[in-house]
Write a protein that binds this DNA or RNA. Structure first.
Lengths: 253, 253
DNA sequence: CCTTGACCCTGCCGTAGCGTCAACGTTTCT
DNA sequence: AGAAACGTTGACGCTACGGCAGGGTCAAGG
């Protein structure tokens, strides 16, 4: 038998057969005078065995191990291990499909945030805010920052994060408070850092911040904070700096 | 922010960030005088967006497509496609796990064939044969050939194959008939091709062959047949040749 | 001043399981 | 005799990065 015939007999490609030769999974047969490989029945049988194992999901390295140890003892071990691995994969895929169905349902109702898909918790919060993000530039930026925080918070801490944020965003009158704060900051987009409205705005922002916000921690994460401040105009950055300092120095409401 | 800080903020490795730069997914930021990349808030936000998409299971190419088209319209399309793909994968894994459980149950009872795992149908047939494969070399070879045929037969044809084979292997007196045929062939291992027992054995083999066997087709598959014959001793090969010719020329029982 | 440690840079190799050329020789059909 | 269909080796491509080599940069401490 030549390689193409063997391939057709077992149902694989010639490329796969040569690959198995290369890995030492399948012994190289004799060569004819013209250099062609000449296969016998034993090669077909061994190749079929390799195929059955790979179709179960074994990697070629595991196949080699199983074939090397002449007993089937090790095979059971490998199969059990493989089953555990497949169980993990199946669970992971199942979880992702659940997430996908959520997102597709949201999209059906046009509730998909422009920032891309976010966690269900944050999506709910954004729902409360309505179209505030489409009228105020500062509000849009705040949404982006919330999205960033949301993404980098591991799922098991998300509940805690939302517990901190929700009262500020959805309590009674919260929407008006947010609108006020955003409007004050919007107004300072082109102002100088010593504008008198800066101090007033800082006061409003501080009062609006969630009381449980770990301000000290925020101030220590210099790199991220600098990036955030650098993204604001000078006067706006000054407002945020002042508000944070006041909050951490005593939180006087 | 430098690259390590950005990585820690969003929860990825620096290597991944550089990879995204290389693929053009994330724009390269300004460089400091020393060549270090200097990131801003927008980079963190974009990186977080990329992460959320990859965590859903999108490939980086799909992420690029979604980010390129500024609307979310295409995202829904991609998500639906992805869900279909994941559904296929989940089904495939589920099927393989079912196979694995079957095999592990068989192994539990020590019923795993030495030839490695085979289809449930063939495993059942082997069960009927008992330890015939461990006493007769020809029987062992026959088992190997059955395994080969089994592997290269697509699952939807397996029922048909077994319908052809089962009467021969498990009908009344079938075990004795098989034992007789195998013994005749074993006896010819070192015989000359003109041994008088060859003709007798050929007669017995022909009568034993499944009546529905497509002998013409078998004789046409020269390559495999040659390999099979080459694996027998000359006298045994002659028996098989004769039996096949008789069967195809009229099937006189 | 020098060292140490913690960063940063570019660039290349490795991963699993083959698919897909390339560039060339052999067999087989017409 | 020419073309189609086969065979040979060798090398690159794909995913989403990890890991390493071989360097440069920067702050703190002896």
């Amino acid at each position: 038998m030549r390689i193409g015939e063997l391939a057709a007999t077992v149902g694989v490609t010639t490329r796969a057969i040569r690959h198995y030769h290369h890995l030492g999974l399948l012994p190289e047969p004799e060569r004819l005078g013209n250099g062609y490989r000449e296969y016998g029945l034993r090669h077909a049988v061994e190749l079929a065995r390799i195929r059955r194992l790979t179709e179960l999901g074994l990697g070629l390295g595991e196949v080699r191990d199983v074939l090397a140890e002449d007993a089937g003892r090790d095979l059971v071990e490998v199969l059990a291990e493989l089953d555990a691995d497949l169980a993990r994969q199946e669970a992971a895929i199942h979880g992702r499909r659940a997430r996908l169905r959520e997102l597709l349902a949201e999209a059906e109702q046009g509730r998909l945030p422009a920032e891309g898909p976010v966690s269900p918790e944050l999506a709910a919060l954004f729902g409360e805010l309505g179209d505030l993000g489409r009228t105020s530039p500062t509000a849009a930026k705040d949404r982006e920052m919330l999205t960033l925080i949301d993404t980098s918070t591991p799922p098991e801490l998300r509940g805690q994060l939302m517990a901190t944020l929700l009262p500020t965003m959805t309590g009674p009158g919260a929407l008006d408070a947010a609108r006020d704060v955003y409007a004050r900051l919007d107004a300072l987009a082109d102002a100088a850092p010593d504008d008198p409205r800066v101090a007033e705005a800082a006061q409003a922002v501080m009062a609006w911040l969630p009381p449980e916000l770990p301000t000290a921690e925020v101030e220590e994460n210099n790199a991220l904070l600098d990036a955030i401040l650098g993204d604001f105009s000078p006067a706006q950055a000054e407002v945020v700096r002042l508000a944070l300092r006041m909050a951490s120095e005593g939180g006087a409401r």
